[in-house]
Design a protein around this nucleic acid. Structure first.
Lengths: 255, 255
DNA sequence: CGCCGCATTGACGTTCGTCAAGTCTAGTGG
DNA sequence: CCACTAGACTTGACGAACGTCAATGCGGCG
């Protein structure tokens, strides 16, 4: 199970602090209790389940969602390689949402007590985890601004920009992407109906901003998309490491 | 300046872990570099300011807000005794919002490096800070659900329930409260216009659910308010300590 | 090849924002 | 102590944005 090493993991620059010494890296690797594969459509964690570990995504793509009082599934976020799942469970030792794989995935299981123990020795990790959680707080603040202040088309423009930026930071094309989620899941996340999402895609295509063919999206005019997103970005967005260096991104921290 | 001790602070059960030994309490107290008073209307931290410390509120009431691209002030949250301000600044060493006192306040200044150092020694504190940040993540998720899934009146019902619950946990009446913020600030927070807030108050009053006289609100029918808030609560809400014991609250974690 | 889930498109209605007029209150200064 | 004023609040009329409902198209998978 530990044939996979952090040292050679492609997601490492997204989930661990930079500049760890080889000794520290060994220490950090001990945190990973095990690794799990999750098939497309399978659920990694269930809402209400007892929390013991956080998960770092090595490969794959997830959605997190929760059940609202009236029975609808509300999508909370989309997660990709190097991002963490389960941080919301720490507060009450209970996971607050489902995490469902939208493509076959591979995750590291990190028990919280080991994470804490190693954090006491490796101060860079301690700081990194605080930053990771702080980042999630700011990200969610960005979504709040988006939901409160943006029109349907603006939200969708932000969403597309954000997805491509994060994918680009992981080696994919900055202008072409394959959506892993349905229109309904996008709508749920942005608090819009699937019809509204569909209409926006069609309109963007008619304006020559995008080419859309079902899940395949080709962005023709990034600037046009960015002009639609009028809400200021609180913090930098797609960077492989936290820090002041990446502040110039104009995309809202949301997804 | 250290005439004020954590041991005798009334906000302590909200901002520190329970069951600290006297020795641990001494250690924890060393974190507090200084204390600051903030007059009503004054700003504790400014958006964009370099982050070095988090703040724990001893007394008083704050709003946090950020400037959107188009120049509006968007209220992000309201904070009261025992709650932390500034956790969002950790990720990029920069505060992402203003914190403005809505009544005269008194806060503890806790430099992050000291917080980290003490956390390495006092594992209960380490865990507590992770829980505090996890809580903020879940709280923000609750606001997202509220903004996405609730009507104006439902949002305002949730808001009122939440405020009274938090105030009740701090010794105030569970049914009577004095709002520290304007209709416009409530509206900004809930992504509604001040007219909509006003109309909802009037309607609730006409229904006999509330008595409202400007900032003075008297809740006559808590059950009616709770019935309006249809979105399920992800986690427990008003508790002085984290843990599974407080799960029964039916109010959405938002504010 | 046919079916089913996903996506598109149109018509209509509800909710809340916008604009505007007017009231009340706390705070200020005479 | 009272008059004045600026800001906060209330209330009404109207319109735009998006949700709702419904019909239809289409592509991938068995």
């Amino acid at each position: 199970m530990s044939a996979v090493r952090c040292a050679t993991c492609k997601a490492r620059k997204h989930c661990l602090p930079a500049n760890l010494s080889p000794q520290q890296l060994d220490r950090v690797e001990e945190m990973v209790a095990t690794r799990r594969t999750v098939k497309r459509g399978a659920t990694l964690v269930h809402e209400g389940e007892r929390f013991t570990s956080v998960y770092a995504i090595r490969t794959g793509f997830f959605k997190t969602q929760t059940l609202t009082e009236d029975g609808r599934e509300q999508v909370i976020g989309f997660q990709m390689a190097g991002e963490y799942i389960g941080l919301d469970g720490i507060v009450d030792d209970t996971h607050t949402c489902d995490a469902v794989a939208l493509e076959d995935a591979d995750v590291c299981v990190i028990p919280l007590d080991r994470l804490e123990a190693v954090s006491r020795d490796v101060t860079a990790l301690q700081r990194h985890m605080l930053k990771t959680m702080s980042y999630e707080i700011v990200r969610k603040g960005g979504v709040m601004l988006l939901l409160g202040g943006m029109r349907a088309e603006e939200r969708i423009a932000s969403f597309l920009l954000n997805l491509t930026q994060r994918l680009h930071a992981r080696g994919y094309s900055p202008s072409e992407l394959v959506l892993r989620m349905t229109r309904e899941e996008i709508g749920s996340y942005l608090c819009l109906k699937l019809e509204t999402v569909s209409r926006a895609f069609s309109k963007f295509a008619a304006q020559g901003v995008l080419q859309v063919k079902l899940r395949h999206v080709h962005i023709l005019d990034v600037d046009a998309l960015e002009e639609m997103t009028s809400v200021r970005t609180p913090i930098a967005w797609d960077r492989s490491q936290f820090g002041a260096a990446y502040k110039e991104s104009s995309c809202i921290p949301i997804f």
